[in-house]
Amino acid sequence: MSTSEELLAPLARAAATTPTALWNDSADPDELRRSIEFGAVGATCNPVIAFTAITQSPDVWVPRLRELAAEHPTWGESELGWQAVKELSVTAARLLEPSFAASGGRNGRLSIQTDPRLHRDAEALVAQAVEFSQLAENMIVKIPATEIGIAAMEEAAFRGVSINATLSFSVPQAVAVGAALERALERRAAAGLPDREFGHVVTIMGGRLDDWLKRWTSQHRILTSPGVLDWAGVAALKHAHAIFTRRGYRSRILSAAFRSHLQWSELVGGDLVISPPFDWQARINENGIPAVDRIAIPVAPTILDELLTLSEFRRAYDEEGMAPAEFGDFGATRNTLRQFLDADAQLDALVRDVIVPAA
């Protein structure tokens, strides 16, 4: 490592010295600009993120929503709200165009999420994914990692959509998505379609796996050693990354849903994407968390052995711990889908209050 690299803040040092890519877990343009200074080469948006970004900038979005309502007098709250989400995403995508060009499309991506209300309809997910992919050249589209969603991912990827799996918390989900994306690439080759860099990523929301296991152990009155459950998501991410590397999958694992710096520091060194919220990025830098290659260092045997005593962790960790038909009923999936659906409802209510204010 050169002297100049040693002087870099941890996030920038990891970006400069390892294949690990930093993305920002928000499409808020101000946050994204600051994150790019830390080395970010991608960003993401979902209903929760979009609702938060819009409510934090009422000076921008209240007049814009009124303009949209005037321009489209027949649109309802949902159509107006999703138009705002699309505009927010396109603005963020422009900030990432230099990274997109420099990486040949592997990075520089803005993730936009399909409407969670479509989660039961594969054809609707594919159609919306194709629509969203055309908003910007560097758009990557999130589809839920359920049995229905994975079928939609394969078809959308075959049609040329760059994919980011969401509602994904486990190794079996990630492996099923990775395999589906490989099939899509093989189908494209067999059909003579153009070969290009799609930048596909497969998210594991590690912190939400931790959250679910904490709730599950509480429900079952199971006591674990303090701190052990904070390693569950990290263990799943390391395991999935090792499988992807061994199989040569052309998609990358993405770490999201931060609960501690472990979901960055334990993964540095891998050819994967790490997507912390901006505040986590700032705290990692402020606290000087070392940017050390730790991706191949296994979770301590005492921790992993205790985690493996939990049947619910084994479902999430073992490659065959769940069948695709079970993905949608996994506790973390249900809880997060409900949160996404609730954010959609909140966005509808926000638009309603703007275009039909109380008398």
Rank of each mutant, 00 (worst) to 15 (best):
A92H: 05
I355K: 14
R221L: 10
A124M: 11
E319T: 08
A136W: 02
M153A: 11
R215L: 08
E266A: 03
D329R: 09
E182H: 13
Q263T: 13
G233Q: 04
A152V: 03
V356M: 14
E79N: 14
L68H: 10
R252M: 02
A43R: 00
L8P: 01
E320R: 15
E286Y: 11
T18R: 01
V62T: 13
L267C: 04
W264V: 03
A15C: 04
D30F: 04
L304T: 04
L8S: 12
L135Q: 03
F340K: 00
P19G: 02
A157I: 05
D318G: 13
M205K: 07
V175S: 09
V62Q: 05
E319I: 09
M1P: 15
L88H: 03
T18V: 00
R13I: 06
T3K: 09
R106E: 01
A102K: 04
A240Y: 12
E87F: 07
L267H: 03
L118F: 09
G108H: 01
H220T: 13
M153R: 04
L307T: 02
F244E: 04
A9E: 15
P144A: 07
T18C: 04
D305R: 10
V161P: 07
R196K: 09
V60W: 07
V60H: 08
V90T: 10
V85G: 06
E123T: 14
D344L: 12
I204W: 05
A93L: 04
A53D: 02
S225M: 10
I295V: 08
W82H: 14
F330T: 01
P47Q: 09
L181F: 00
I204F: 05
T52V: 12
E123F: 04
K214F: 13
L11C: 07
I148P: 00
L96H: 01
M153C: 14
V62E: 13
S260G: 12
R334L: 08
I297T: 10
E67D: 15
A157G: 01
L209N: 05
H241N: 14
R106V: 00
G108M: 01
V299M: 11
P98L: 07
T3Q: 11
G160I: 02
E131F: 09
P172Q: 11
V234H: 01
S168M: 09
D210T: 11
T333D: 05
A256L: 07
R117V: 13
R247C: 15
P63F: 13
Q219Y: 11
W216I: 12
E71A: 11
T91A: 13
E266Y: 12
I253E: 03
E186G: 11
L223T: 15
A136P: 11
T74A: 15
G328E: 08
P290D: 02
T18F: 01
A145E: 04
A12G: 06
N46G: 05
A191L: 10
R34D: 13
G76L: 14
I54C: 11
